[in-house]
Design a binder for these strands. Structure first.
Length: 514
RNA sequence: GUCAGAGUAGCUCAGCUGGUUAGAGCACAGGAUUCAUAACCCUGAGGUCGAGAGUUCAAGUCUCUCCUCUGACACCA
């Protein structure tokens, strides 16, 4: 059973921003977690490259649409590689394999009687790629979101008969867990309850798109072909482009992770399209929140956008991943605050987790021959810290599948806090001054190092690099494959050597604003 | 405008089916300690729980009204 998950296919109209990075990081954490749990994982991301908006952007830049797409897509691929995103696929909707798939899908819908021609006229916003509800006799209406004049369009389009799916869509979205988080379900329900209308799936006069077979002059509307990119990605396994192969290629996905703005497309339009084509439906759709910065919307006009590349360069992947996943409830909107970012990274990662490891390793080396104390197995198994560590493991294992990264991160952090507290209570540095306490100190230090090891392992999906550094400080190599065996209490080998301690996490010191 | 959600310490948020002196983290102040990355540990200060009314022995938690913010309201990647 494959666990497949997708990010949105990002629109290549402009260079990647922090929002897409956020989504991708979250998916990466989930994908890494599932691999550690022993699942066969297919992590899909990619880009959406069609539509009139891109065509016009390219024209404005005086380059071909394809050249423009190549350039921006390259930026995405490079960025994900810099962030060490572990995606298995990267799909482009201008790739050769995509066209035959879209056409095959379309034929299925057509054969099922769900495609009709229709007439569509009205005021159109190219930026939005949509018809607006402004009255036909309006003089020179402009788009409320883009502040640009609307264009009058009067064209023949192909329509997808969404109206025929009212009932099945209603029961689909009523299924618990299909739309996540549950708080977002209501708005989709309201939308559906208003009655589903057919939507257009083709455009005329847009050359930068995929041709609709049998309808000369029509290209597919960007949404129609973009969603199908998920299928193309899954079939890109060296085999043929054939919808019948999907079930053995990772379809249906376990979860589509998307921004809340496009929830409706994924929870309503997309399932209907799949029903029409006779394909199984995704198991869930998770709409996460948006990021603001210091309480304000990030945008070009305000000049306050956070460039992911710059962020990575100045702060590193661990700091950013930790902050985004640990401080923001995935699903809710979040605010990026520089002071808080620095505070949390320094407190949680450097002070609490990093220093725990550092101080313990240092003590152990000092008193136990540059290595771990040699303690008997029976004593180790009974240590008071064991229960706490095992509880933490449980918490992480139940939280991450629910995409509750915050809860998982907090649980791991809490283990480190409790372990630090334990050390202060026991005060091994005082005990060592008393005669005959060495055995007790050895047992405690062993248990504390064992907790540090478990912290390091549990951190792997969230902050993979830091996780490795922690394990390296314990003289361990990175784990590959399933982590189940590694999560067993008492895996550290008593008496084995410990490397010279070095801070695993440097403090962030940002003199200037990001 | 209609619908949905939210307004709790300086900041980010927990508070389940109403029940002892309203919690956590960060920031702030004090203390303790020296194993450690000026770190860790403890203590403290700080809130009329958006406003008003009501139900109840008892309301942050239920009802009503009002104020503020956010989101959705058809094809906004």
């Amino acid at each position: 059973m494959t666990y497949s998950l997708t990010t949105p296919l990002y629109y290549v109209n402009a260079k990647p921003h922090l929002g897409s990075t956020y989504t991708t990081i979250a998916c990466d954490a989930l994908a890494r977690f599932q691999r550690l749990e022993g699942q066969q994982v297919l992590f899909v991301t990619g880009v959406d490259e069609h539509g009139q908006k891109i065509q016009r952007t390219a024209e404005a830049r005086k380059i071909s649409p394809q050249a423009h797409c190549d350039e921006i897509s390259r930026e995405y691929m490079d960025l994900w590689s810099e962030w060490e995103i572990s995606n298995d696929r990267f799909v482009r909707t201008t790739s050769e394999r995509h066209l035959p798939l879209v056409q095959e899908f379309f034929h299925r819908c057509e054969a099922a009687g769900h495609i009709r021609t229709g007439h569509q006229e009205g005021w159109y916003c190219v930026e939005c790629e949509e018809f607006k509800d402004d009255p036909a006799n309006a003089k020179s209406p402009s788009c409320p979101t883009h502040q640009k004049p609307l264009e009058w369009r009067d064209e023949e389009n192909l329509f997808f008969c969404l109206s025929k799916f009212q009932k099945p869509i209603e029961s689909l979205i009523a299924e618990p867990g299909f739309i996540a988080p549950a708080s977002r379900r209501k708005e989709v329900e309201n939308f559906v309850a208003g009655g589903l209308r057919d939507f257009s799936i083709s455009r005329v006069n847009v050359s930068h798109g995929l041709p609709v077979p049998g309808h000369a002059g029509h290209t597919f509307y960007v949404w129609f072909d973009a969603l199908l990119g998920y299928l193309t990605a899954l079939l890109d396994d060296g085999g043929s482009v054939d919808l019948d192969r999907l079930s053995s290629a990772g379809w249906p996905v376990s979860v589509h992770v998307i921004g809340k703005d496009i929830l409706r497309f994924h929870a309503v339009y997309w399932p209907a399209m799949l029903m029409s084509a006779g394909l199984p439906l995704p198991k869930s759709v998770f709409g996460h929140g948006f990021l603001t910065r210091e309480g304000q919307k990030m945008g070009k006009s305000l000049g306050n956008v956070l460039d992911p590349e710059l962020l990575l360069e100045r702060c590193g992947t661990d700091a950013v991943r930790w902050y985004l996943l640990r401080d923001i409830q995935f699903g809710d909107d979040g605010d990026f605050q520089q002071q808080r970012f620095v505070d949390l990274v320094n407190n949680d990662l450097a002070n609490t987790i990093g220093n725990l490891l550092n101080r313990t390793s240092s003590m152990s080396r000092k008193w136990f021959g540059n290595g771990l104390p040699a303690v008997a197995e029976t004593v180790r198994d009974d240590h008071v810290l064991r229960g706490k560590a095992e509880l933490t493991i449980q918490q992480v294992r139940t939280s991450i599948p629910e995409l509750n990264f915050q809860k998982a991160a907090e649980a791991v952090l809490q283990l480190a806090i409790d372990t630090n507290g334990f050390l202060n209570e026991q005060a091994p540095w005082s005990q060592m001054k008393q005669p005959g306490q060495e055995v007790q100190v050895g047992e405690d230090l062993y248990a504390v190092l064992e907790c540090s090891r478990i912290v390091g392992i549990l951190l792997q999906p969230i902050v993979p690099d830091l996780s490795q550094r922690i394990l390296a400080q314990l003289g361990l190599s990175p784990i590959s494959g399933s982590w189940t065996d590694h999560l067993k209490w008492g895996s550290l080998v008593p008496g084995s050597p410990l490397p010279k301690p070095e801070p695993v996490m440097q403090r962030l010191e940002l003199e200037s604003p990001l």
